[in-house]
Design a protein around this nucleic acid. Structure first.
Lengths: 345, 345
DNA sequence: CTTAGCACTCTGAGCCCCAGAGTGCTAACT
DNA sequence: AGTTAGCACTCTGGGGCTCAGAGTGCTAAG
């Protein structure tokens, strides 16, 4: 549905004023603060139209208008000005990402902090999703007669290791044999493929060590469990309490209770997609979880190397400074991906 | 300061009624609900005494009394009945800890959840503190010419590993040599000792590989940074919002903002102590952080094996069901330590 | 030392009122 | 036909008021 030029300007004015003040916006205020070029009465008529079309809402008769979810959506899609970060914030990001840490986790932790701080909303970063990574090295090294260390490395430089308790005595030579078979069979496959398909083959080749393999499979499945081990990093819970829409403790409680459940939070954050460089905005009722229907979320995918991906997002009230948040998320996504690129290479 | 028998009973009555109802407790209510055996007037006098002694407070004239921090302290130290968990909660704990996971982290995550759920307050668990653990195995295995995997195992079965980018080409044989020197020199030492003292010696013996050693030291220091990498697990943030003392959004915001800072949270949680099997209660003003002076915290140390320790705690309003919380924390501490014991052996 | 009686105090809920902001409608204007 | 001024009407939110209820401290009697 296309809106006329003047309706657009009015809708934009209402959204922006409401985001700024938190008060319903009246025709008079629009006329005063934005030069639409017509009188309040005309604006009143236009606003009545916009309400009928579903872009605006009236909290009660004789209050100003506030944007509906649809109004925000239209604003975000068509009306919102492209913004760049404040120089000050940009500087902070540069500072953070140019210092070369070696630790992926540190970088993620700092990312979630910086997202929360610069937006003053709540930030979430999901740790990297390894399922799509390709194995480039795997080995089983002896430790004691009944213990071995399993080490795996992916093509983008992830290291995972685990202590395996061996079900029976296995000599060093045998472990080496196992390692070489593992390498031959599994390298180049994604971790997902390994648990699904390649396992059969292994069981044939290493039938003698079936019990050992089972221990390993256990580990694989655990470290790949979709959201189990995919750690979630949260920051800025306190931030959202600064916004008047969260004055109501019960509402906040509902929201927090929801976000504490990692599976729900993961659903909220949407699907990671390595190809996608876009920032996604989910407004109010668009998001899949009942309890956060009056929040908006801005999400994006970051990458570590070519295949490993994770998700980041900012959650705040629907009355959110969308342009700014999108600018922040977009920049952070880009800089984080860049930083990982340098780290991994 | 010793209190007379009757004063004790009255103080206890006030604390318990206040904890239950959240309303200031009047002399009449005490007389009715607890048979002290004297009239409200007498109780009134006693309460006035207790107030003067600093055990009770009056929010305003002509309201009932509420316990002061000192009153709670006396209650916890001397008056509180020893409680056992409700059978239902106990069952839940048994269920949780008898299923034998192999993952330390999973166990910790579930512990923090269960603490939060059974108490309905907020729970914190600090990941294990490795500084006191003793190294039992260390090795450096080749991966590519310029990369190696560093693996270390402690005597209680912790595994840590890292990918080292080598500053120059190092052959497999050389790595093996380094590994054997490392093993010889470092095994049996605590990680703390290693970074502090043993390092010198290594630098002499492996002078040729100084650059490699430096990479390793970096890793050691990172993984031992006192509270940096010592992960904090939180649960039940939403819970505390159910309590009327946290109706005030601004107060909650202060508290959350504080708890988001891991260094402050670590200070709140106090010092881990392997020897100590006690549960510690910190009430209101006793705790070191200004912003949480109207909260109480119940903490305890858990162990993984003989030396590695971590901390767990429950944070809630001063008006807390101390006896129950202490019972929960004590039981969870015991069962978690037990579970780790079985896992590690 | 304990208790009944009593005057006094303070809070919090409920209620009312009203200014202020904003609307929708009508009728006049361009 | 679209725009505007004028106007009556509506709704909210805050301030102020009142009052019942709960609880105290004091006094004097048991």
């Amino acid at each position: 549905m296309e809106l006329g030029e003047r309706k657009m300007r009015i809708l934009r004015a209402v959204v922006e004023d409401y985001v700024e003040t938190g008060e319903p916006v009246g025709s008079r205020a629009v006329a005063r603060r934005h030069d639409i070029g017509v009188s309040p009465a005309t604006i009143r008529n236009e606003m009545a139209d916009l309400e009928e079309m579903g872009y605006l809402l009236q909290p009660h008769t004789s209050a100003g208008r506030i944007p509906s979810d649809r109004g925000y959506r239209y604003y975000v899609d068509k009306l919102m000005p492209v913004t760049e970060l404040r120089e000050e914030d940009l500087e902070r990001l540069r500072l953070l990402y140019q210092q070369r840490t070696q630790e992926i986790e540190d970088l993620i932790k700092q990312t979630v902090q910086v997202l929360a701080r610069t937006t003053n909303y709540m930030a979430v970063v999901m740790g990297p999703q390894l399922a799509e990574a390709r194995l480039s090295h795997i080995s089983l090294a002896p430790l004691t007669p009944y213990r071995a260390v399993l080490v795996l490395v992916t093509d983008s430089g992830f290291l995972e290791s685990a202590l395996l308790t061996l079900p029976h005595r296995v000599s060093g030579a045998e472990l080496e044999h196992i390692s070489s078979v593992l390498n031959k069979t599994l390298c180049g496959l994604t971790l997902d493929q390994i648990t699904r398909q390649a396992w059969r083959e292994l069981e044939r080749e290493l039938a003698r060590f079936r019990a050992v393999l089972e221990r390993m499979l256990e580990f694989f499945e655990r470290s790949l469990r979709p959201f189990g081990s995919q750690r979630m990093y949260l920051a800025g819970t306190a931030n959202i309490l600064t916004h008047p829409e969260f004055r109501d403790v019960d509402r906040v409680r509902m929201i927090l209770r929801t976000l504490e459940q990692e599976d729900l939070l993961a659903r909220l954050m949407g699907q990671a997609d390595a190809a996608e460089d876009e920032v996604t905005v989910t407004i109010g009722v668009e998001n899949p979880i009942e309890e956060v229907r009056d929040c908006s979320i801005v999400t994006a995918t970051y990458r570590i190397g070519p295949r490993v991906v994770g998700r980041m997002g900012v959650l705040g009230p629907k009355r959110m400074r969308y342009a700014q948040v999108i600018a922040v998320v977009s920049r952070v996504r880009q800089m984080l991906t860049q930083a990982f690129m340098e780290m991994v290479s």
